[in-house]
Simulated scan of single mutants.
Amino acid sequence: MDKYIDAHIHLDKYSNIELEKMFHELPFQLSLVTVSSDLASCKRNLALAEIYSFVKPAFGFHPEQVLPSDHEISELFSWIKIHIEQMAAVGEVGLPYYLRSEGRKQLGGYIELLEEFIKLAKKWDKPIALHAIYDDAPIVCNLLEKHSIKKAHFHWFKGDSAAASRLIANGYYISFTPDIVYEKEIQDLVRDYPLDKLMAETDGPWEFEGPFKNKPTHPAMMAHSISALAELKELAFSSALKKLYNNTKSFYNID
């Protein structure tokens, strides 16, 4: 049976019924890296990992929301440190690109919080899953370089060639979603990015356009994504699938 790893999904946002249906329908062997958005999200992802051995939880605070209070930050970090052994990675963390596009201009507190997560990843030798696109990518690179972080994953990365070149030079990974099937921007980026630094994700339950319009986001969509990648890289599907699986398994230390 083929083996897949969804490198970035929000399992906590699916209901138990949706998850049972999703896992029952799978036509392949699957592992999932489920990222967290806040403390409640961390707790649900940990609970899911205790039920499903193929679920690997990442703990963090999604940046596209109002910053937590000092008390909430302290509570979150205290909880993470208690559960550090169960944590596959730090994530999802980063900077609020979309919030700022809606008129929120202040980055300071978000940068400070991100740096604390980076320090945690460094201290505990954990991979870090990042939300950092376009103009935010160089800012995040500065922080990663400052703390000599090697295992960084820029999920659903979008950015110009200069930013992509910097990520490549640092050995950072990026992942692509099902929009590789219909988005030229993503196709061009992935075509030029080293194969050994790529992973596949769904970012579910985020919904997609093109052939996936009005369809619930499901890990099975990765078969379409990887087929698109194989065509872009002029590879056999089986070779692309195996390479992405091994990349993700190694990056996230998945058994």
Rank of each mutant, 00 (worst) to 15 (best):
G171K: 01
F117T: 00
H131T: 03
L195K: 09
H224C: 07
D196Y: 13
A129I: 15
S225E: 06
N16Q: 10
Y52W: 10
K150G: 05
K43R: 11
F157I: 08
A129V: 15
E25R: 14
I84N: 07
R44G: 04
H62R: 02
N253S: 11
D255L: 03
R100H: 13
L232C: 14
F237T: 10
V35M: 08
F212Q: 00
I9T: 08
K197Y: 15
G204L: 05
P63F: 11
A47P: 03
S74T: 10
G210E: 05
K81L: 11
S53A: 13
H10D: 03
I133E: 09
L99N: 15
L189A: 11
M22N: 06
Y134E: 14
K105A: 14
Y245D: 08
H83W: 09
L144V: 01
H71Q: 13
K13A: 09
K213V: 10
L229V: 15
L113D: 01
H155S: 05
L167H: 01
F237E: 12
D203E: 05
L48T: 08
L189V: 12
R104A: 08
A129F: 05
N214K: 09
A169S: 11
I128K: 04
P138D: 03
I180M: 05
K233M: 11
E209T: 12
Y4T: 03
A220R: 14
S239C: 02
E102L: 13
S161K: 14
N214I: 02
L167Y: 04
A129N: 14
F176M: 12
P178M: 04
V55L: 02
I174L: 14
I80M: 15
I168A: 12
S69H: 05
F59H: 07
D192F: 10
E183L: 11
D136T: 06
K184S: 13
K150V: 09
I226G: 07
F54P: 14
H83P: 11
F154W: 05
F59E: 00
V66H: 05
A129T: 11
E20S: 12
W206E: 08
G103A: 06
G94R: 00
M22I: 14
H8V: 01
F54L: 04
F154M: 04
I226A: 08
F61A: 00
K56Y: 15
D135F: 08
P178A: 06
D6W: 06
Y252L: 08
